[in-house]
Amino acid sequence: MIAYIVKKMLLAIPTLFIVALIVFCLMRSIPGDPAMILAGDINDPLIVEQIRKSLGLDQPLPMQFFLWGKQVLSGNLGFSAMTGEPVFETMSKRIGVTALLVVPALILSVLFAVPAGLYAAWNQNKKGDITIMVCLIVAISIPSFWMGMMLILIFGVWLGWLPTVGYVPFGEDFWQAGKYMILPVISIMLVEMATITRMMRSNAIEVLRQDYITHARAKGVSERNVLLKHTLKNSFAPTLTLIGLMLGSLLGGAAVVETVFSIPGIGRLLVDSIYARDYAVVQGILLFVSLIYVITNLLVDVLYPFFDPRVKL
């Protein structure tokens, strides 16, 4: 088991290295000389040259990448041009907010998707299944930001049940904070929920056709146990992989939903930083998002044998 985990972790290192390389190349290909921008009005070539040297920009590109990589690894992501704060601090303030949006959305989607997918598969081609499938394809087709706006309009403006936009930290007022998060979580989770349900359903249908299910039924195992013991576990394993992969799109979706609901999360920070051309922050966020993605998929890989022991340890 430990060998398996170590192997998976080692495989993640080249991925992270390439991510860093891609982000580095993207940032370096932005038009404009960072040294000139830092020098501002001072139009002295000597001073610009000095700044260039202090930033390491006079070195060849591979050397620059190496120096930059060393800084990143030591946790130094540079300073935000907007606030002058270290990027790491700016980001860590926002990460928690996005987590409060993405984690509940993911948990609720799975809590809905697994039973719904199982139920639909069990009732394949019957009324319940067809109803669920039609609802799902509609849910997949509605953009999350428009869904968010409609929810604001219905529950915030017309019915007045929930606050419209904004964010209250959970530390200040727990109930109020929860109320503010309901609509954003719903609008970000619908697509994920529908995708996971569809995956769960098709996996469960596949499993229900297997000989061991027929065998279990012939043996007299109750339908409940056939579903819960034999089908659930075996069809959840491939679904788990999808859930890991969906985290990327959830974090991307967070940028849009946070904009709709004016939530100060990391997605909103990215959009603001792109507008403000605050490259250090953009770079930090891209690195951070891919790190989260790689770690989550590592966790999924590590958990996978638990659901499907056929995967060699």
Binding site: T15, I18, V23, L26, A255, I274
Partner: peptide, 19 residues
């Protein structure tokens, strides 16, 4: 490919448009 998949499509597109 694994590395590119780690950057969500929308974020990657945003970053490319910044360049």
């Amino acid at each position: 490919l694994d590395a590119l998949m780690a950057l969500p499509g929308i974020l990657l597109a945003l970053a490319i448009m910044m360049v």
